[in-house]
């Protein structure tokens, strides 16, 4: 897991997005990321689920990190290789204890607490850590399915 993180962090990002912790900006960020996923070769079903997972990660930062403050900074790096898409999401918000980041029991029927479950369910890897100075870092990886990889390879060939 740490090896994957180091490899991904060493590569330059295809795109770096900086966005404020304002809920009304979730939709345009989601759309931009989904557009990049299409370019990177994700199929429709994957693209929508990735957009959802990123949305959930940003929502958690806005809610629990910045406590709904709309002017906090969030950075999103998008990278890809031949087999996967990687996303690194960083903030300058409160450092949440890592033990508090967990999926809730889905047998409980109650509102809230689904975000971490959705992220883990959609992504092949999700690793939260504290940044050295301040804030949180979330590293996400989504393996491309065979159909996606074929698209990606054909893009590289042309």
């Amino acid at each position: 897991m740490m090896a994957m993180m180091k490899t991904a962090m060493d590569q330059p990002a295809d795109i770096r997005i900086q966005v404020l912790s304002c809920p009304s900006l979730l939709a345009p960020v989601r759309q931009a990321i989904e557009a990049w996923c299409t370019l990177a070769g994700a199929i429709d079903a994957e693209r929508g689920r990735i957009g959802l997972a990123i949305d959930e990660a940003l929502t958690n930062i806005i809610r629990h990190g910045y406590d709904h403050r709309p002017d906090g900074k969030i950075y999103i790096d998008l990278r890809r290789d031949s087999t996967s898409l990687q996303f690194i999401i960083e903030d300058e918000a409160r450092q949440v204890p890592l033990s508090e980041i967990r999926s809730r029991d889905l047998d409980e029927i109650r509102p809230g607490g689904l975000g971490v479950h959705l992220i883990r369910e959609v992504m092949d890897e999700a690793v939260w850590s504290h940044r050295p100075q301040q804030g949180m870092r979330l590293m996400l990886r989504k393996n491309l399915v065979e159909t996606s990889k074929t698209v990606l390879e054909s893009q590289h060939d042309t």
């Binding site: 929502t59 029927i109 689904l114």
Partner: peptide
């Protein structure tokens, strides 16, 4: 066209 967990939570709350 799109709903995230905050929308789902709202529906769970309304169901209850």
């Amino acid at each position: 066209g799109y709903m995230d967990s905050s929308g789902v939570a709202t529906l769970v709350e309304a169901l209850q």
